[in-house]
């Protein structure tokens, strides 16, 4: 049992990052019916951006607890800001001109893929192309916060799950309670009618990109802190998060959160079963296969994802 729980914690950690990224896909899909495939590079930019800031203030020495909290907040905020800027830039450069000219959906897709390549190669050019860039170790990431009967949760895992949940809760409130949230839901529901009601569609879309980008950038910081960062880091988590968004019901905010967590947990639990014995039945190299088999199975029985498709309805 404790072995099962250990893997569950690993899955929740990974899943909460997937969920944060998935929100970016789902928000943009909600308002534009567009898959923003460059979102994975928004995530990557957040990691690099926050590294530049964090590396300035923190070194390889452990800070006192208030310092750690300060640096973590700084990292998340700077990652979020960089992510938001990149996402906004994407919307202005790659999508809005196309929208103005009434381009077909396919053109958006190509534009997104082009921006994705451009951004990851740009990061490779500006920084490096090595796979093992790490944040400075300013706190003991492996410190056991909870340890009961062989089940352990490390400080890093608490930080990641906690801050991801906080951000998700914040977004949920934002969309369901505020005026901005109402306009996002309005545009998602029926853009022309929303425009008639006095909602500035372009501005709402831009803000949607900014919110999604901020979450993605913050996720980039968390991911980079946990696993390291590099210029092509966005690809696999991006694909997984997109799958998570589809799993939960693309365009649906709670669906993206649920899908992300679920995918992370499935990835950690299924390939390593049976837990506690040394040899797994499936083998860890099948992790991605397992994840996507689950996706396919869910879509066979619920084609519009677990929670259904609409942003307006579910939030």
């Amino acid at each position: 049992m404790q072995d099962f729980l250990n893997f569950l914690v690993l899955g929740l950690t990974r899943g909460s990052m997937y969920a944060l990224i998935a929100l970016g896909y789902t928000l943009v899909y909600g308002v534009l019916q567009l898959i923003n495939f460059a979102h994975s590079e928004v995530f990557m930019s957040g990691a690099f951006g926050s590294y530049l800031v964090v590396n300035l203030v923190a070194g390889d020495t452990f800070l006192p607890w208030y310092g750690v909290i300060g640096v973590l907040l700084l990292g998340m905020v700077s990652g979020g800001i960089v992510g938001a800027i990149v996402a906004y830039g994407l919307e202005r450069v790659a999508y809005r001109p196309l929208r103005r000219r009434g381009a077909p959906k396919l053109a958006f897709l190509i534009s997104a893929i082009g921006m994705s390549f451009f951004l990851s190669q740009l990061a490779g050019k500006m920084f490096n192309r090595q796979k093992n860039n790490f944040f400075p170790e300013y706190f003991d990431a492996n410190k056991r916060i909870i340890e009961v009967n062989g089940v352990h949760v490390t400080l890093l895992q608490v930080i990641i799950i906690g801050s991801a949940l906080a951000m998700m809760l914040f977004l949920d409130q934002l969309v369901s309670q505020t005026k901005l949230g109402r306009s996002i839901r309005g545009v998602a529901e029926d853009a022309p009618t929303a425009a008639l009601m006095g909602i500035d569609i372009d501005r709402t879309i831009a803000r949607t990109f900014i919110i999604g980008g901020a979450l993605g950038g913050a996720a980039g910081f968390l991911f980079g802190t946990a696993f390291g960062f590099f210029n092509t880091m966005g690809f696999i988590p991006g694909v997984k998060a997109f799958a998570a968004a589809v799993l939960g019901g693309i365009g649906n905010i709670r669906g993206a959160m649920l899908g992300g967590l679920l995918l992370g947990v499935v990835e950690a639990l299924v390939p390593s079963a049976p837990w506690g014995t040394s040899q797994s039945w499936i083998g860890l190299q099948w992790t991605d296969v397992v994840a996507f088999v689950v996706l396919v199975l869910v879509l066979v029985f619920r084609p519009s994802g677990i929670l259904g498709e609409r942003l307006g309805r579910a939030a």
Partner: peptide
Amino acid sequence: TDDYGPIATQVAQS
């Protein structure tokens, strides 16, 4: 793979 958590846990528990 980015996340070596699952394999490491498996090694530790084996």
